[in-house]
Nucleic acid binder design. Structure first.
Lengths: 321, 321
DNA sequence: GATACTTTGACAAACAATGGACAAGGTGTT
DNA sequence: AACACCTTGTCCATTGTTTGTCAAAGTATC
């Protein structure tokens, strides 16, 4: 579509081999070997015969490195075109760490303050450096400076998005993402420990359905629910419908909140939702949110489940009784 | 356009045997043996006679491995078609639920104080009642009263064991276990945030290998490591060997600590350990612990990996340099 | 001279294929 | 109980291929 053959920034060669090596994590020797043996890319040449790689080349090399990291053999993937390669890498990633489908581009930080922006930069730097302690320090400071609400909206949410993007662009690895998850869990978990709520406040069970391992959405939801006046029973991720139903019954909960991120539109999750509705009957309110939630809209409709757009829209508890 | 009968991505052979082995958890030798003896799949061949498996092959092999894991004999299930197999696996799964390997009876609380015993009872009651807030209160009080070390030894470790037993005996449900996990994570995570350690303290990367979803052992290890004077880079659970190696390299870590709880003696985990050792070379110390660790003893020996008995035995960092 | 790049050739490890062997555990027969 | 037999996962030897890395020798730039 945008393929003016010349002049295109994507295809204009300009990166030297050392730069590309650092950027992709592939040593120069190996870059040359891959080119020599499999013709993996065809970089242009500078005046003295030096290799000059285009952005498109870098992109393709990043995909190849990911495929190899996932356990593929370079000879098996070297011949694939970029589309095929991208599909392969995406699939491998799903299996390796259960972490899924491109989130349907959450909204970019809207009214982010300059202050939050500075924390965001500092946090990103700490993640990139795998600096656990530094990241915790940034989050603690930000928590004090911004308050809970802004912390979630202006720091944590954009941070998750940026790290996701950077991973996708090959600048970060899965390990960075895990580090962030671990720290954020530590930051978010205390938020729903709020014991100041009356014993009689309506309860909500917060979890993710079986097959859905990503917990951060659930933690954000739990923190938001506390602020709305719910008493939260937090159950962690990956719980079968029977367990959710049993817990809701035992806790005398008025609602269940589920976060859906992985595998948009997958059949197992839809079935879990159906089973849950059947097990709990019509009286329990069920809320779902998360990047993948909208892909289940038809099922949600059929089951009378409410879709929540972002943690800030978490419903207030019913006033009756 | 995607429905050309050939050209179909599901049936086009493209996965090398090593990759399939990792993906399915079936070692290469066994893959070949199953093919030779039962014709379980018919992979295509690459130009030099190398096996290339299709997505459909991988799917079928995964089903077969699940059936075998559930106690079926390969000879009995090898002839079934995929639909039959899927039904069988689904049925078996319902029976076994999700039985994590029986822990090899961790030591009963040795010198437990009466005080800790009271906290233990209170904590168990809160878990049984799904009382999130109450459980947090008990843990917070206990943390102050007992101190970190005794908290781990005399409360958290026995608590995990008791809940595990009660769950196994049907007195508690998965939801109770998850509630406990979530709260304990909140308690343990701050323990390795200790910023008082010098920037130059030797670093240890703490995580669990791919396939191992249980995080609490890793958290206990992280907390113990901090007390021993390590600077901890905590990466959460379920990380492939490449990622662990990459993170250790980037963090300039002196050691990696892994917690193993699920599926004692399983092949995937053993392979992950082997790959990790290969990727990091001989210079990085690797520690493993957890209920399932002893079932890998021969592998650990072969790889020069140190088995740690309980978080209290976590090794001190090397004094050299 | 130090640095960054080029080409070519070489090499050790890791990986894969075939076919055979074997031990541990289960099944069946007497 | 003892026995032979089958099943199954693992291991080995041998051969060959693939792949990451290294070294040598040369060139341009600062």
């Amino acid at each position: 579509m945008s393929t003016m053959p010349e002049e295109n920034t994507r295809t204009r060669p300009r990166h030297a081999i050392g730069f590309v090596a650092r950027r992709t994590g592939i040593p120069p020797d190996l870059l040359r070997a891959w080119e020599r043996r499999y013709g993996v890319v065809e970089p242009g040449r500078g005046p003295r015969g030096r290799r000059l790689y285009s952005d498109a080349d870098v992109e393709r090399l990043t995909l190849l490195r990911r495929a190899v990291d996932a356990g593929r053999r370079i000879g098996d993937v070297a011949g694939m075109d970029n589309a095929e390669l991208a599909a392969l890498v995406e699939e491998d990633r799903r299996v390796m760490v259960e972490r899924p489908g491109r989130p349907a581009g959450a909204s970019p930080p809207p009214g982010t303050s300059a202050q939050a922006g500075a924390y965001l930069d500092a946090a990103l730097a700490a993640v990139a450096a795998l600096d656990h302690v530094g990241l915790v320090e940034v989050m603690d400071e930000a928590a004090v400076a911004l308050g809970r609400r802004a912390l979630r909206r202006e720091l944590i949410a954009p941070l998750l998005e940026r790290v996701g993007e950077d991973w996708y662009g090959g600048r970060l690895r899965v390990a960075h993402e895990h580090l962030l998850s671990a720290v954020l869990r530590g930051v978010l978990e205390p938020m729903h420990r709020d014991a100041s709520l009356p014993e009689t406040a309506p309860r909500v069970v917060v979890t993710t359905p079986a097959g859905e391992l990503h917990e951060l959405g659930a933690l954000m939801a739990a923190a938001a629910a506390v602020e709305r006046g719910w008493r939260v029973v937090y159950l962690g991720p990956n719980l079968p419908a029977e367990e959710i139903a049993g817990a809701a019954r035992q806790a005398a909960a008025r609602a269940a909140a589920l976060s859906l991120v992985a595998n948009p539109g997958n059949a197992q999750t839809a079935n879990e939702l159906r089973r849950l509705r059947r097990l709990v009957g019509k009286d329990l309110a069920i809320y779902v949110g998360g990047a993948a939630a909208s892909s289940y809209d038809s099922v949600l409709d059929e089951l009378g489940i409410v879709r929540v757009n972002g943690a800030e829209d978490f419903p207030a508890p019913p006033a009756d009784l």
